[in-house]
Amino acid sequence: MSDRAPKTTLVVNGRARELSLDPRTTLLDALRDHLDLPGTHKGCDHGQCGACTVLIGGERVLSCLALAVMHDGDEITTVEGLAARAGAGDAPEALGALQAAFVAHDAFQCGFCTSGQLCSATALLAELARGDLSVVTPDDDTVRVTGDEIRERMAGNLCRCGAYPNLVAAIAEVAGQGEEGAS
């Protein structure tokens, strides 16, 4: 028989945390209920809304469909780890570029999906930078920062308040800055 509560180490926002978890515990529930990081939200618990998006090894995944035990040793970033200066609270100067752009563009209303939107957008910037494809990428396979690319790539993060136009604006602003900085 395998262990009822195997030891699992999750490196969350740069800190290694060892847990003994029921194998049924999802990464989402581990973050929320065992690691006191409730900023990652449970919108549907079935991979259908994107609210629980976190980064594992820098790539975006849905924490509700990930069993925590399967991520032993993995590096996980949640919304709480996105701020420019971790632990600096919510003073405006401590926000990361995307977080600040979200506030400036009013890219959320109720805010419940926002943690997932931010994690998703963080990964999106990296995906755009390395030229990952989407279904709207033109036939020449050249990825450009366009509204359509952002819309398609953010389609996995539902927002019932309908902040979509402002989300596109906020992400485009940061993606555009990144491009300028690179060139």
Binding site: D90, V103, D106, F108
Partner: peptide, 13 residues
Amino acid sequence: GPKKVTGRAPYTA
């Protein structure tokens, strides 16, 4: 806004 973009706005759950 700053609370909501840092995951510090406490919803019921």
